[in-house]
Computed example of a mutant assay.
Amino acid sequence: MTAENSSGRLDDDDYPAYTTGRAADMIGTTPGFLRALGDARRITPLRSVGGHRRYSRYQLRIAARARELVDQGIPIEAACRIIVLEDQLEEAQRTNAEHRHTVGSATPTAAA
């Protein structure tokens, strides 16, 4: 892969660019916490050819949110469920906004 081809991935939120240690450092947690999120099936890191976990920026945002909730005393399983519900709510709000925009642009304006 050339540098030109790989540089486009730097902006890809789903590209698994970070090792477990680096990912843990970036969000201020431990590698064990990231593994626990994997055990809870909230994030599933990709594996390198050598079998090492690799995390994307999107997964790190989820892990950071889980860390915030756990730091507030919420059990990790509940924190993961909260994150799922937050994601579903955000998606529903986005869908509703798109629908309103579509319906609004399809409604003919009244003649004055």
Rank of each mutant, 00 (worst) to 15 (best):
L46C: 13
E68C: 06
T44M: 06
G38H: 11
R65C: 04
G38R: 04
R42W: 04
S48V: 10
A40Y: 11
A63L: 05
R61D: 07
A40W: 03
R53Q: 06
R42A: 11
S48A: 15
R41S: 12
A40I: 03
A63G: 06
Y58V: 04
Q59F: 03
A40G: 11
R41W: 08
L46Q: 14
G51Y: 06
L60Y: 07
P45A: 09
Y55Q: 00
I43V: 15
R61K: 08
R61Q: 08
I43S: 00
Y55N: 00
E68A: 05
Y58G: 09
D39V: 07
R42L: 14
R42Q: 12
R47I: 02
R54Q: 15
R65E: 02
R61M: 03
L46F: 12
T44Q: 15
E68Y: 12
I62Y: 01
G51K: 08
H52E: 14
A40T: 08
T44W: 05
T44G: 15
A63N: 06
Y55L: 01
Q59I: 00
R41A: 15
H52D: 14
E68V: 01
V49P: 05
S56W: 02
A64Y: 03
G50Y: 09
R61P: 00
R47P: 10
A63Y: 04
R67S: 10
Y58W: 09
R53W: 07
S48T: 13
G50A: 15
R61G: 10
R41H: 15
L46K: 13
V49Y: 14
I43A: 08
L46H: 14
R57A: 12
G50I: 07
I62W: 00
V49D: 15
L46W: 06
R57I: 00
T44V: 12
I43W: 03
R65N: 04
Y58F: 05
H52P: 07
G50H: 13
D39L: 05
G50F: 10
P45M: 00
V49A: 15
S48H: 10
T44F: 08
R65K: 06
P45N: 12
A40N: 10
R54M: 13
Y55I: 00
A40V: 06
R53D: 12
A64N: 04
Y55M: 02
D39T: 12
L46P: 05
R57N: 10
E68P: 01
I62G: 04
Y55W: 09
I62N: 03
R57D: 11
S56T: 07
A40H: 13
V49T: 14
R53L: 07
R47Y: 08
Y55G: 05
L60V: 07
I43R: 10
Q59D: 08
H52A: 14
G50N: 13
A63F: 08
V49Q: 14
